[in-house]
C-alpha cells in the first residue's frame, strides 16, 4: 500500500517536472530573440488593394493568393522598426531609418489584383502571380517578376538584373531599366506591343521576336518596332548589361 502511494507521488512529481519544463520552454519561446523580431499582420481587403513597401536592406517577396487579404510576415533586426499606415484598402509599410539601418526581409501574400509599389535600397525583390500595376524602385536589387500578367510596370534599378516572365495585359507603359545588369523578358508569342530598346554596351538579343517584329529602327544597340498589332509601349533600357527577349 505504501509502495503504491510512493509510486503515485513519484508519478505526480514527474508530471509536475514535465509541466514545469513545458512552461519554461513556452516562456523562453515567448521572449523575442534579440537577433530577430517577427512582424506579422493580416489586413482584410474589401476592394482593390494598394500596397506600398519601403524597405532599406533586405528582400521583398510578394506572392499572389486567392484570399481577399494581405498577409505580411517580416523578420527584422532589432534596430529596424516597421511603421504601418492603413487607410481602407491602402496599406503602407515603411522601415524606419536608423543608424545603422537594420535588415528586414518581407514575405507578403496579396490578392492578385493588388497594385504594388515597392521601394528598396539593397536586396532582392520578387513578385509572383500579381495582376495589378507594379512599380519597383531600388538601387541594388535583382528584380524578378514571375507570372506577371499586369496592366503596367515601372522598374528602375541602378545595379542588378531585371527578369520579367509574364504577359502585357493593359495599356502599359511597361518600363524596365537597369544601369548595371541584364534586362531579360519572356513573353508569349501572341503578345502585341510597341517595343523600344536601348542598350549601351551590349547588343540587343530579340530571340524569337527577331523575325516577327516589324522594325522601325534596327541599330544593334537601339531597336524599336511593332509586334503584331502594336499597342502598349514596352521600353527596355540596359546600360552595361544585355537586353534579352524570349518568345514563350
Amino acid at each position: 500500500m505504501l509502495r503504491l502511494k510512493d509510486t503515485i507521488e513519484r508519478c505526480r512529481g514527474r508530471k509536475l517536472a514535465r509541466l514545469l519544463a513545458l512552461l519554461a520552454c513556452l516562456f523562453y519561446l515567448a521572449i523575442p530573440s534579440p537577433a530577430a523580431i517577427k512582424f506579422d499582420r493580416t489586413y482584410n481587403i474589401k476592394g482593390q488593394a494598394h500596397l506600398t513597401v519601403a524597405n532599406i536592406n533586405g528582400a521583398i517577396t510578394v506572392t499572389a493568393w486567392n484570399r481577399r487579404a494581405i498577409a505580411v510576415s517580416a523578420i527584422n533586426e532589432p534596430s529596424a522598426a516597421i511603421a504601418e499606415q492603413v487607410s481602407g484598402d491602402e496599406i503602407s509599410l515603411t522601415v524606419k531609418k536608423a543608424m545603422p539601418p537594420g535588415k528586414v526581409s518581407f514575405q507578403i501574400f496579396v490578392p492578385a489584383d493588388t497594385d504594388l509599389r515597392l521601394n528598396n535600397y539593397l536586396g532582392r525583390i520578387e513578385v509572383r502571380g500579381v495582376r495589378g500595376d507594379v512599380s519597383i524602385k531600388s538601387y541594388d536589387s535583382e528584380v524578378h517578376l514571375i507570372d506577371a500578367a499586369i496592366p503596367s510596370v515601372d522598374v528602375n534599378v541602378t545595379t542588378g538584373s531585371i527578369f520579367f516572365d509574364g504577359d502585357l495585359t493593359g495599356d502599359g507603359p511597361y518600363t524596365l531599366q537597369t544601369l548595371n545588369g541584364d534586362v531579360d523578358v519572356s513573353l508569349p508569342a501572341t503578345t502585341s506591343f510597341q517595343l523600344s530598346t536601348r542598350a549601351l554596351s551590349e547588343k540587343i538579343n530579340l530571340g524569337g521576336f527577331l523575325n516577327s517584329l516589324s522594325s522601325e529602327n534596327k541599330a544593334p544597340k537601339s531597336i524599336s518596332g511593332t509586334h503584331l498589332k502594336g499597342g502598349p509601349r514596352l521600353s527596355l533600357i540596359a546600360f552595361t548589361g544585355r537586353i534579352l527577349l524570349h518568345k514563350k
Partner: peptide, 9 residues
C-alpha cells in the same frame, strides 16, 4: 517542362 528564366538563374 520548360526551363523558365528563374531556372536560368
Amino acid at each position: 517542362r520548360r526551363i523558365s528564366m528563374v531556372d536560368r538563374l
